[in-house]
Design a protein around this nucleic acid. Structure first.
Lengths: 228, 228
DNA sequence: TGAATAGTGTCTTTCAGACAATATGCC
DNA sequence: GGCATATTGTCTGAAAGACACTATTCA
């Protein structure tokens, strides 16, 4: 195995405190499917494997600021839903050194999915969450946990607002719910429930396109609302 | 190690990575009220203020192991419900140096609440969560977040099992729910619902004491069960 | 027998879930 | 007119919530 400069220079005796990173799971809906942005590693360890983007927390930077910085480096966008997920810190999760990572997830409105990775030469790619490649480090575990959290919150909050464009037809909203939850929903029951929650407002516009036009809705509040 | 937050002699020039601690919110029911174990600080900063117990994560120790070690140092108990809460890492949350803390909460069965702080000279005390003194650092924010999480989980999991003794009358269980949620519940509706969830089993014992004896129940599973 | 706690049932309302036919616009 | 998508309502069952009286033991 090829060893990188990092590994060669690493001397355990020099350190008695762990490194801290933030990893950020960037989700968006594209083509009706929930997708996550991954980057391809170019160095040992896990060279060639896909990974959740992340980076070190600077000494004067809050955790959330570090996550936002990573997000902006990868996507160029900044003003999105961001939530801390969990911290992962098993001593051997990174073979180079002790690294504790604070994971965050971000939800991008689907209008922003085409932002190209602003970063230099890094290969970044969107993957359907149903078809994710083998991941580096313990990232598979982190992704699994993120999906669990997201699926949980979809049930009792309006969190999907963060995945939707400004206005949208109800069918697109239903598709978003379905792709997050991983199963189909009944159209009539879905519309009945969503409209009864009073979190949507109709616009006076219809979307153009083939076939019967549909009324466009918008979220009344683009902030997290917890039901009950 | 001990003397968590008392490491002094901080020299900013020596470090470019943050220190990492775990803080552990230790909850138990006593006398019908939800209580938290706090320790009194003896040194700057926040000398004399009460704080959530915590300490540094050792370089070869997992986050959960660090939290369990803290728990055992404070209470002597080890086999309790433990869940990671959230990480807090604002750059100025500790005036001595950059400290990122990974918070956990533990739930103790009320039979174990009388364990005295095994630690040396540290003053530790149980406080009703309704009557907590001013806290050091950002610990008020952490406690608030913990209560929010706990109250949320009480609704859709059997998490209260971790606060209950092996067997108990339904009235005691109801009191536990009430003290976690912060409001009264209807006795008939409470019993109807709890018994319909199939998470309780009746024992064939009744509790002795003054007045009419009550049937004792036990949790069928002492593991977290998510409803739905 | 009085005090204290245990135990129990009905009604109403709300919500989830199953289920299929009509309406509208585009080509 | 044919196709594709939008839109709409009823019934049923389950669960939540309001609400008050009887039962049992002990002192």
């Amino acid at each position: 195995m090829k060893k990188s400069q990092e590994e060669i220079n690493y001397n355990p005796e020099d350190y008695d405190r762990p490194s801290v990173t933030t990893d950020i799971l960037i989700f968006a809906i594209d083509n009706g499917k929930l997708r996550i942005l991954l980057i391809k590693r170019k160095q040992w360890p896990f060279e060639g494997k896909w990974a959740i983007p992340g980076g070190f927390v600077q000494i004067n930077e809050s955790l959330e600021a570090a996550a936002l910085r990573e997000l902006e480096e990868e996507t160029g966008v900044k003003d999105v839903y961001l939530e801390q997920l969990k911290s992962f810190g098993d001593p051997d999760r990174d073979p180079r050194m002790r690294v504790i990572t604070v994971s965050y997830f971000a939800l991008l409105p689907s209008t922003q999915i085409n932002v190209q990775a602003a970063s230099d030469a890094e290969e970044a790619k969107w993957f359907s969450v149903e078809d994710v490649p083998e991941l580096a480090f313990d990232h598979a575990k982190i992704l699994e946990y993120a999906l669990e959290r997201l699926r949980g919150k979809v049930r009792y909050t309006n969190i999907v607002f963060a995945l939707m464009p400004e206005t949208f037809p109800l069918s697109q909203l239903q598709q978003t719910y379905e792709s997050v939850l991983g199963h189909k929903l009944d159209k009539r029951n879905f519309r009945k429930r969503l409209l009864s929650l009073n979190i949507l407002e109709p616009t006076n516009k219809k979307n153009t396109g083939a076939h019967r036009p549909s009324l466009l809705y918008r979220f009344a509040k683009r902030d997290l609302v917890i039901f009950d």
